[in-house]
């Protein structure tokens, strides 16, 4: 059974059919890559599933439950989390605070008004442990706005990971970082995701990353799904290479 299933999911912006009747499925435990040229509808699809956008029509089922009308908060509680293409962090809070806030929210403690945050030792320890996993222990006390771009990308994922998601969307986790940094970032993310059995959907433009780190690939084009398959199948798919590169594979 699919962990996530969308049926005829549609989102139009005026004349622009950003997502056009998409049937998209993600199986549990999979690391799936979502590829396509700019404007193909990848981020819009993720925005619809994560709740940032409301669908015009169609249905989103997560773990067999219809979450189409759920709020962002409801979807997070159901187990859907995401990182962002443009890093979205709490820049004036420390890296430790960034992760701790996810844990406070996950545990339903963020609304505690009259008790000091420092009293929740277990949450701070868990936040430190998460930072350690992502190789950011040395940055714990630094403001999130003051660390390097690659570290910010990792922290962005760490904040989402700390929510204990069943399904994690990673929107271009290596965009804006140097080529040299991409593999270490993806190695870190991939090892954490796979070791924890988290199902992940990676939106990525870098084909090396897509082919090296995913189990399955879905290619989008003009708001629809153009092709779907294993990395080898997609590599050999003529319509995909034509769409993405402009010339058929030789």
């Amino acid at each position: 059974m699919s962990l996530l299933l969308t049926t005829k999911l549609t989102k139009h912006f005026g004349e622009n059919r950003a997502v056009d009747g998409v049937d998209f499925a993600v199986r549990e435990g999979q690391v799936l890559a979502l590829i396509g040229s700019n404007g193909a509808g990848k981020t819009s699809l993720v925005n619809l599933i994560s709740g940032l956008l409301r669908a015009d029509s169609g249905q989103i089922q997560f773990r067999g439950v219809d979450v189409t009308a759920e709020s962002v908060h409801g979807r997070i509680r159901a187990g859907i989390a995401r990182s962002f293409q443009l890093v979205n962090l709490f820049d004036q809070l420390t890296c430790l605070d960034n992760v701790a806030l996810s844990i406070f929210a996950r545990e339903g403690k963020a609304r505690k008004l009259f008790s000091l945050a420092r009293r929740y030792r277990g949450i701070w320890e868990e936040a430190a442990e998460v930072l350690h996993r992502f190789g950011l222990d040395g940055k714990a006390r630094m403001l999130a706005g003051g660390i390097a771009q690659g570290e910010r990308k990792l922290l962005d994922v760490a904040v989402a990971y700390a929510l204990h998601p069943r399904l994690l969307f990673l929107d271009e986790p290596t965009s804006g970082v140097s080529t040299r940094e991409k593999a270490p970032i993806m190695d870190t993310i991939s090892s954490i995701v796979r070791s924890q059995g988290i199902t992940a959907v990676i939106i990525e433009h870098d084909m090396d990353i897509v082919f090296n780190y995913s189990d399955r690939i879905v290619c989008m084009h003009q708001g629809t799904i153009l092709a779907e398959g294993t990395p080898d199948e997609i590599r050999r798919n003529e319509s995909v290479t034509t769409t993405l590169i402009g010339t058929p594979a030789s």
């Binding site: 994560s50 940032l52 962002v72 908060h73 997070i76 989390a81 995401r82 962002f84 979205n88 962090l89 709490f90 820049d91 004036q92 809070l93 605070d97 701790a100 806030l101 406070f104 929210a105 403690k109 963020a110 609304r111 505690k112 008004l113 009259f114 008790s115 000091l116 945050a117 929740y120 904040v159 989402a160």
Partner: peptide, 19 residues
């Protein structure tokens, strides 16, 4: 408090705080 942290998070980045 945790609530105070959440407010600062909202101040810094509303979208992320929601997510």
């Amino acid at each position: 408090s945790p609530f105070g942290k959440a407010l600062q998070a909202i101040r810094d980045n509303e979208t992320r705080a929601e997510f």
